[in-house]
């Protein structure tokens, strides 16, 4: 019993440190607020009239939502992706500046140290995702209290998986600069190829989809786990799903478990 209370205190301590550091990091906060505003304001508002079918008089797909509504859940995912994956920089920081040793000579088992870290990163990322929810009214998305809670829960699970993923990357790319470049070149392609800014119309068969989009893009989008994360969040926020509703949450849960286990194996080795 005492052991368990001690363990909870330890995880809380590691978590609290991450939260404290995040609130002092102005740059990260500014990024977390300005990124979604730019995406929604410029890309969202700019492309809004072209959605709903007519592009130079040609009817393409009919999706019963405005482009802003369609884009809104994806921007939340983008914000979470950035904050979660970039969070792993703090792992490199801890190793480089020696703080890691302070934790490693404490009686906490390594699995709990990592759990505290990932929970801390996921909390910060969920907060950044949650900031976007404040813009919901502006994007014409109406939310009930229940939808809001479901969205936050799903966002936290996604952030947990992505934070673990970032930590796996950080264990391999051990320099600050290297990690910054690497993560940036990874985040945007993953985001663009996740049906985030264009729909794969569910009414079309795969062959038909291929005639409108090149096959490689359809393949990439379907292979990208982020596609299903965006899809699940769309399901929660605007009731629009391109895939079976259980698929998104299942894939995101799988990501959280698998990535955390791999991160733990890496961490036990250092």
């Amino acid at each position: 019993m005492n052991e368990a209370i001690g363990a909870v205190r330890g995880v809380y301590g590691v978590w609290l440190r991450e939260i404290t550091r995040a609130t002092r990091d102005r740059g990260q906060m500014i990024g977390g607020v300005s990124r979604p505003i730019i995406w929604l304001l410029i890309l969202g508002v700019g492309l809004n009239p072209y959605f709903r079918g007519e592009v130079y008089g040609q009817v393409a797909y009919v999706v019963p939502y405005t482009y802003l509504q369609f884009l809104f859940p994806a921007v939340i995912v983008l914000n979470i992706m950035y904050t979660s994956i970039q969070f792993a920089v703090s792992m490199i920081w801890d190793r480089e500046f020696g703080f890691l040793r302070e934790v490693l000579v404490s009686p906490m088992p390594r699995s709990l140290i990592l759990l505290g870290k990932v929970l801390g990163g996921a909390t910060v990322a969920t907060t950044h995702g949650g900031l976007v929810l404040l813009l919901a009214r502006f994007a014409d998305v109406t939310l009930s209290f229940g939808e809001m809670a479901a969205a936050l829960g799903f966002m936290f699970l996604l952030a947990f998986g992505l934070t673990s993923f970032g930590i796996i990357l950080a264990a391999r790319v051990r320099s600050f600069e290297g990690f910054g470049v690497f993560s940036n070149t990874l985040i945007l392609p993953l985001y663009f190829a996740s049906s985030s800014i264009f729909p794969l119309d569910p009414s079309l068969t795969r062959t038909q989809a291929v005639t409108s989009y090149p096959e490689w893009l359809v393949f990439l989008t379907r292979a990208n786990p982020m596609t299903y994360a965006v899809d699940a969040l769309r399901g929660i926020l605007i009731d629009f799903n391109q895939f079976p509703t259980v698929l998104g949450p299942a894939i995101v849960l799988g990501m959280a478990v698998i990535f955390f286990v791999i991160a733990l194996i890496d961490f036990n080795r250092t």
Partner: peptide, 8 residues
């Protein structure tokens, strides 16, 4: 405080 927490 961090040190105290990780030492339970």
């Amino acid at each position: 405080n961090f040190h105290g927490l990780v030492h339970g």
